[in-house]
């Protein structure tokens, strides 16, 4: 009951945001928060719930982005047509990568995903069909509404909000299903989970494929908003890291963790970029590094886990007070 109440308030706030903060910069910022929240929520399925820390998720992000721009560049179709193609390709790539790499444990899985991501970037950089180092562009002048090329950030804002809602709904449904339970069990002890009949490899693979598909949608939306993609913006390792840190900072393995993380990090980055201009790019890495250290040292569960704990503490305190009052 109380949760429904807070959820309703959060939805109202998100819907009202671009009307309260109505400058183009603020609206664009809001849209970016939601976009990264989609990507981080998608990562959360495999990285948070299943505890398989993928640092190569940019492969799927890029896959979606290139599919959307490719549909326009090569076939003069709406980038929207590329989205399902990118999704299917991402799921297929995840299956191919996942079968050998998900057998690896802990850091080795992370390292393998980094290798795959860098490989993908190098291949694309040297493939003329995918624009090589220059990249691919979307329609310069929108032909119709289906090109999803708007000057204002407002349409993107609500589009991203809708996609985020779907992503979170899928995640929520998954966590309440047998698959979600199995993933959490595998994260804590794969050996015990298997001894109780959980098909660990298959469950992780499905989660990886689901996560990859949703990440590619985020990539496609990103390319549509910016109207172009190149190896750095579509396949740069920093994007993987960004997605990962957002989820970890907000709370990996928690439904709204990635959204909270994105709402903190994206404004931080945008503001530091606008203050420092081009020189800020290097500083962003420094900030990310510092955040990783701080999360790992003080709050591995993320901000949302901290809030939940404080909330629980307050509740028990209230209850014990209540109990004392009843007793007297």
């Amino acid at each position: 009951m109380r949760r429904t109440f807070w959820l309703a308030i959060a939805i109202v706030l998100v819907v009202a945001y671009p009307w309260v903060f109505s400058t183009p910069f603020q609206q664009r910022l809001g849209a970016l928060v939601l976009l990264y929240a989609i990507a981080a929520s998608a990562w959360n399925i495999i990285g948070g719930y299943a505890g398989q820390v993928s640092v190569g998720h940019v492969v799927f992000f890029g896959c979606g982005a290139y599919a959307a721009m490719g549909a326009y560049t090569h076939f003069a179709l709406s980038p929207l047509v590329g989205l399902p193609a990118g999704l299917v390709a991402s799921v297929a790539i995840a299956a191919v990568i996942g079968v050998p790499t998900l057998r690896l444990s802990g850091h080795y899985f992370s390292m393998a995903t980094i290798a795959v991501a860098e490989l993908a970037r190098l291949i694309v950089t040297n493939t003329d069909y995918l624009g090589a180092a220059v990249g691919l562009s979307g329609p310069t002048v929108p032909r119709n509404v289906f090109d999803l090329s708007f000057i204002s950030a407002l349409p993107y804002y609500y589009l991203f909000f809708a996609v985020l809602a779907v992503t979170l709904a899928i995640t929520w449904w998954m966590t309440n299903s047998r698959m979600g339970f199995y993933l959490r069990a595998i994260r804590d002890s794969e050996r015990a989970a298997r001894s109780l009949g959980a098909p660990a490899s298959r469950t992780k693979l499905y989660a990886y494929m689901l996560s990859a598909g949703l990440t590619s949608v985020a990539g496609a939306l990103y390319a549509m908003m910016f109207g172009f993609v190149d190896p750095d913006s579509g396949l740069g390792l920093l994007i993987s890291v960004k997605i990962l840190i957002m989820a970890a900072l907000g709370g990996a393995g928690l439904l709204f963790g990635p959204l909270v993380g994105a709402a903190i990090l994206v404004p931080l980055e945008e503001i530091s970029n606008s203050l420092l201009g081009g020189k800020g790019a290097g500083l962003t890495f420094v900030v990310y590094g510092a955040i990783i250290v701080l999360i790992a040292r003080f709050q591995p569960g993320g901000i949302l886990a901290l809030i939940n704990r404080l909330w629980a503490k307050r509740k028990t305190k209230q209850e014990s007070k209540q109990g004392a009052a009843d007793a007297s």
Binding site: R184, D188, S189, R191, A192, S195
Partner: peptide
Amino acid sequence: FQVPQTFEG
């Protein structure tokens, strides 16, 4: 398991 493999979370 000899050393309990509890799902801690």
